[in-house]
Nucleic acid binder design. Structure first.
Lengths: 232, 232
DNA sequence: GTAAAAATGTGAAGTACTTCACACCCAGAA
DNA sequence: TTCTGGGTGTGAAGTACTTCACATTTTTAC
């Protein structure tokens, strides 16, 4: 594993493995679950990357997060009677996933307060990130959305290089746009502007950020710790 | 209490009252806490209404939620070492608030799994709402932001009338705009358009929605249950 | 009741973003 | 090699939203 800037996750969330129903292998391009399907399970990522998105009525896509090792997904329907997944989960790489029954985790959390505590901690972090993302997307327009997405990507998948930080994740303009609620063209335009200014460069669909400070300054980034500000 | 459409809250969250450090009276216009202050407590609302907002560097305000009876606020710093409040909480009415020490709740949740379970349930609902709000604010532009805010207000503070649903909460254009990340003028323009079409009417800063279906249709509302879609 | 303050209404000009249209570039398949 | 398709680059036109400026109405304070 490359030396990313990613914050170390709680070791304890792995404890959920003990109550896993089964471990599955899922290939790149497959959906782990899709919006509207019956939801009875949640997933602990052992390896691989999963993109969580919402598809709109008119066919657009809003990407919300990318999960990797020790992340949980499919959690939105926990503790409700809601029977359907609200989002879709697409495998970006081949991966190994632990499947946990909804009733199982609800029960275990009740019995095992240490596990419950870990779970609350995870939710708490997760929630804070989502809340903070809000500000950037709503208050600073599409530029704010893109810039803050770049910062989050850096926190999650950034690898330090001599000339800056490489976001070690291949991304098309369209995919990046999906995270920002913006069009491919607007994303392209904004990225080229950053290239022209020497703030970033792109090679083989991977972005290197040469001047993170510039990007942060433009959106009044408060330099939250990475646990508050990551793409997951 | 008027017969609002507000979903009934879990009775159990009131259990937190038992570990309250003290009960305080706070007057309208006072801040319960402000961004950047040292955070060591969280708050259970017994009565009154509290608006939770984020202030930006350039002085704009983004309002996130309005808490009332049995809501929790100040929860964002739980389970972290983060020492400062991330948001501000303004009293919209006089109210009575139970103050709970952060360490106290962290400890109690660990000891008392029933309480922990209730708390997770609350967080889970809370998170889902925030996540769902995202879509509307990011994907459907400012109109989407306003329309979805109106729907949320209806779910939280709507009172059924012969001619529609009254949102029983006085709101200026500016305040409504703060929830949508939009300007007073844009809010005013959008509201007037809705008035002209007979979809809403406004009297003494309170909005009555005559044709909720029109608003829902415009933003492809999926008619989520109110626990998924409220201003709190 | 009157003055002051707060909130609303509106239009014109400017900026941000989207849509559409199409050229281009490059990697992989035939 | 050429063909093909997915992704990129770009400009023109249109739409959405903001900013500014100011008139009017409503609410609050004395």
């Amino acid at each position: 594993m490359p030396n990313t800037l990613k914050p170390t996750k709680s070791i304890e969330i792995k404890e959920l493995l003990h109550i896993a129903d089964r471990i599955i292998q899922v290939e790149k391009g497959q959906y782990l679950f899709q919006e509207g399907q019956d939801a009875g399970e949640l997933y602990l990522v052992i390896s691989g990357k999963i993109q969580i998105s919402k598809i709109t009525a008119d066919g657009r896509e809003l990407s919300l997060r990318i999960c990797s090792e020790n992340d949980i997904c499919g959690e939105l329907t926990l503790f409700t009677n809601s029977p359907k997944y609200l989002l879709s989960a697409l495998m970006l790489e081949d991966g190994e996933i632990a499947v946990i029954k909804k009733e199982m985790i609800e029960e275990k959390i009740f019995q095992d307060s240490a596990l419950g505590f870990e779970f609350i901690k995870w939710m708490s972090d997760h929630f804070r990130k989502t809340q903070m993302k809000f500000r950037d997307l709503v208050l600073y327009g599409k530029k704010g959305a893109l810039y803050s997405t770049l910062i989050r990507m850096t926190n999650s998948y950034g690898v330090e290089q001599e000339d800056g930080i490489l976001i070690d994740l291949p991304l098309t303009n369209q995919e990046l746009g999906n995270f920002c609620g913006t069009t491919r063209e607007s994303t392209n335009h904004l990225l080229n502007e950053l290239k022209r200014k020497g703030v970033i460069s792109i090679e083989k669909k991977k972005i290197t950020i040469h001047d993170l400070q510039y990007i942060k300054k433009e959106i009044d980034c408060e330099n939250c710790p990475a646990v508050f500000c990551s793409i997951e």
